[in-house]
Amino acid sequence: MALKLTDLKTEVHNDWCPGCGDFGIEASLKMALTEMPVDINKVALFSGIGCSSKLVHFTNAFGIHTLHGRVLGYAQGAKLANPDLEVIAVGGDGDGLGIGVGHFVHAGRRNIDMAYIIHDNGVYGLTKGQASPTLQLGMQTKSLPEPNINSNINPIMLALASGFTFIARSYAYNTRHLKEMIKKAVAHKGFALIDALQPCPTYNDINTKEWYGGEDRIDPATKRPMPRTYDLESTGYNGRITADMSEDDVDKNLLQVIEKSREWGDKIPIGVFYQNETVPIYEERIRERSPNYLTEPPAKQQLAKNDGKSVVNLANLSKGLLFESLVLAQ
């Protein structure tokens, strides 16, 4: 029975501000889930703390709303203990790139087969609009007493440097595009990041829906706004690394990721910046050590026999520590 959008609804009252970009991300995620060949019983959504992270309560799938900045720890732990789960993590930019940035970097090193969507709006919404790590230097959004004193993190470049094997960007109100990115991220074999740009109608009065939509830039010819985002693929861009590529070609590809990630302002690229499935996923690396890992992962191993006695053969396990007492010949 095909999963319908209504199946993914919960009774929980949605308390996001009207016009919040979170709605677009929620809708895109739910559409993606209904269009993907996934068993919804195996889908586990994890979130951090912040407006965006309430998403799991509005979605009828296993939903684990964790700690600020720690979503990746919980999500990776669950995926490793049961690799059959389809784990998707979501969280804000402050969550993932501020307090949780250490985990972000190290998740790249592991390359666990899961997806991570960052709701990127440049502000800490739930604490009333402080600057987040993606807000640019000198910007003064609505509730900042002074302009932002810090430079911003470039999530695409940081993800590349950290070893992420799928790096994409999308825009919350381009739900068709975001949905496709989510489907690609979930299908990707490895750790996949989507930097989902979104307006915060309450606190970010600079990068608004109108700003992204280019309503201040009317095309003189068509008299229509010229949106600031554009689709990378429409320009012939291909960020895929394949096994048959030469080192030079790989280098070229990496450089174009960096180049594209630096575009901002009037031209903001969305789409897949980088995809590399030649890096073995962490699960495969574990299987090299424990051949039964994928078929008998930690969550699926029976620990005791029917009488409760442990299945472990302690005598064999402790052999290296056991000393027989030797009696020498008389």
């Binding site: 919980y74 732990g77 669950a78 203990a81 789960l85 985990h103």
Partner: peptide, 15 residues
């Protein structure tokens, strides 16, 4: 922090 949160995530799967 990652150690305790990963172990907790793992525990949620029944391991």
């Amino acid at each position: 922090i990652a150690a305790i949160t990963m172990a907790t995530g793992a525990a949620l799967t029944g391991a």
